[in-house]
């Protein structure tokens, strides 16, 4: 069992927890992920590491409540425990030779983008960050991004906070104005990452994207997380759990990844509704 040490609501559907997992805390690097199970017989879900404290032996995760498992996790409190917590899995984000980086986070993807930005900042790189949210009440980690970025641009889809529009608008403005980066790192919804790639393409700037496909074991055994990449004109298959989760954005088949991500959407919606109803009932009974 793995104890939840702290719990904090970052916005109504995004929650931050620190979990006691000393071995993982000692090793985890920005860009890597963990897999957890909330309780026995629960499903295994991957979550990218949002930070860790090797001294305290804790790993920070930030998750959005999107389904049955995250709904159950939301109902756990500091002091409670979860069944399983394994990691760090995947390959850490590459930082070598990158002096000027643009980090783009979308929604809860900002939770993963933040430690990456912090790491570049700590290495002395120049960090420009662009974060995007649907609306003001969903904004997270604004101060953290400000603290580690030379320039920090916040966007909301509805214009209720920061600038109105999506993250590719300021990116395109900067690139049009002649600004250049050694690397753009985009972490967020697949559609956002796809459009970041399209925005950067005419300027020939490398883009790294962080993929979060459906997976089970996270060690390369099941192959469920496979992605199709196009490299030198040839299609190749890679596993996000062992080869990723970071990939060259120009190589990724986003449309296929989006389609595969919806494989169980019916099942997931029903499971989520059932779980919510269950918690409502227990709430009423109490």
């Amino acid at each position: 069992m793995y104890r939840i040490v702290t719990k904090k609501e970052l916005n109504p559907t995004v929650i931050q927890m620190e979990i006691e997992a000393p071995l993982v805390a000692k090793k985890a690097q920005p860009g890597q992920f963990i897999i957890l199970r909330v309780d026995a017989d629960g499903e295994r879900i991957p979550l990218t590491v949002a930070g860790c404290n090797p001294k305290e032996g804790t790993v920070k995760i930030i998750f959005q409540v999107v389904g049955a498992t995250t709904e159950r996790l939301r109902h756990k409190e500091a002091g409670d425990s979860i069944e399983d917590f394994v990691g760090p899995l995947g390959v850490a984000t590459h930082t070598d030779g990158i002096e000027k980086v643009c980090i783009i986070g979308g929604g809860v993807g900002c939770a993963i983008a933040m430690p990456v930005a912090q790491k570049f900042h700590a290495l002395g790189a120049s960090v420009t960050s662009i974060t995007g949210f649907r609306s003001k009440d969903l904004v997270i980690l604004e101060e953290e991004f400000q603290a580690c970025s030379r320039k920090n641009i916040l966007m909301t889809d509805d214009g209720t906070y920061g600038r109105k529009g999506n993250v590719t608008i300021p990116l395109k403005e900067m690139l049009d104005a002649g600004e250049r980066f050694d690397m753009i790192i985009a972490i967020g919804p697949l559609i956002m990452m796809k459009f970041v790639v399209e925005t950067a393409r005419p300027f020939g700037i490398p883009v790294t994207v962080s993929m979060n496909p459906i997976m089970i074991d996270g060690t390369g055994m099941c192959g469920g997380c496979r992605l199709t990449l196009t490299r030198n004109g040839e299609k190749i298959v890679r596993f996000a759990c062992v080869d990723g989760p970071d990939f060259n954005g120009y190589e990724v088949d986003f449309d296929e990844a989006m389609s595969r991500g919806r494989m169980y959407s019916d099942f997931e919606r029903h499971a989520y509704e059932d779980t919510c109803n269950l918690f409502k009932k227990t709430g009423e009974g109490a």
Binding site: G223, G224, R226, L227, S259, R260
Partner: peptide
């Protein structure tokens, strides 16, 4: 077509 939804490895 191996990445279509409904294609599994036996392991998975």
């Amino acid at each position: 077509g191996e990445s279509l939804k409904g294609v599994y490895s036996a392991n998975e």
